[in-house]
Design a protein around this nucleic acid. Structure first.
Lengths: 197, 197
DNA sequence: GAACTAAACATACGATCGGTCGTATGCTTT
DNA sequence: AAAGCATACGACCGATCGTATGTTTAGTTC
């Protein structure tokens, strides 16, 4: 009853596969993701991946889950270290910029690549991606709301402001991918203009 | 020397194919576009399409060109009918909203679907899409600039404002695709907030 | 040690991918 | 009438796609 090392090995390689799937999907999209390429890059057999995920759809769902976990650890949680209010909101945006700029995933923002891919494709993957996107917008709106009630920024509509912030961040990610080095600065100028210098 | 009806027929079906390719690409992306599906939908032979475009890449380039032509006719030109200045800028945005909402293409905005698909994929298709995107931003910036010099809106930075407007429009297109009916209203509120009621 | 289980593999399948080749048909030029 | 060109087609190519099936290996449980 200590620990089944077979299952442990399974979840370990499962995570390794999901992590690489996120990198590929951030470039090619979740539809462009393929078992064959994944197997080649990880030096596994295609059928080996198949035993761990059964279907491509399960693999896509696992990739979405892994992406969110990494995003939370790299962007959301570090911002929570900063004092609540406008400072935390600004820290959140700064961490997002480095998330897209570094980048954490090979193709930049995971959702900027996968949402356009799946927004017209019905099924559970679309539903999960939509849920993650909504959660991100709600998180943003919550941080805006806190900054407003603290009286540190203007009395903005949290939902509308979250929509605007997400829009600018997503556009910046695309601009970075297209080679625009000044994208981060445009985001910063927009944020100060939006929240009030 | 009147008119070569062979070439005429060629360009005619060529345009028919390109138009359908735009619709497919607006949903699946230019990578997800396939000759087989195109042939089935148009009731043509796969090799018939290939004789007209030779390679898939040429087809993708033709689709990009066709998309821009339709976009210009549906969004850019109608806005030019309106008086120069802030009114023309607002008309441009309204025409863009109906372009995404109607929608003109089966999957909504063509570039919202194809830019994330090709932003990390080197080659002439990426270059063309990038050029079209830059031209759109420049067009937006020009209309902002005209409104500013006319003294009808605040003294905004045209390039930065164009970036912000494009960001919000693109985000609205995604939101519409995900079922958010209030996306258009968010755009309008953002525009009034941005340009000054 | 025997029975069982999970991970990983090899093999094979039907479908589809983009692309090539040869050919038939109709229009244009000579 | 003859020669040439453009469209359009069917047949086929090698490659890759996702999936299904059976087998081997290693770890667990009895």
């Amino acid at each position: 009853m200590t620990e089944d090392q077979r299952l442990a090995r399974g979840t370990r390689t499962r995570q390794r596969i999901a992590r690489r799937a996120v990198d590929i999907a951030s470039v090619e999209g979740l539809t462009g993701l393929s078992l064959g390429r994944l197997a080649t890059e990880l030096e596994l057999s295609k059928s080996g991946i198949q035993t761990l995920f059964r279907t491509k759809e399960n693999l896509q769902l696992a990739a979405a889950e892994a992406a969110q976990a990494e995003f939370t650890a790299a962007v959301l949680l570090p911002a929570e270290e900063v004092a609540d209010g406008a400072a935390r909101l600004r820290a959140l945006i700064e961490h997002w910029i480095t998330y897209a700029e570094t980048p954490l995933f090979a193709g930049g923002c995971f959702w900027s690549a996968t949402l356009p891919d799946f927004d017209s494709r019905p099924g559970p993957v679309r539903e999960v991606l939509l849920g993650q996107h909504s959660a991100w917008l709600a998180h943003l709106a919550g941080r805006v709301s806190r900054a407003v009630t603290a009286g540190e920024i203007r009395a903005l509509d949290p939902d509308l402001t979250a929509f605007q912030l997400d829009a600018v961040l997503t556009a910046a990610n695309t601009a970075m991918r297209l080679g625009d080095a000044g994208a981060a600065e445009k985001v910063r100028r927009t944020v100060t203009q939006l929240l009030g210098g």
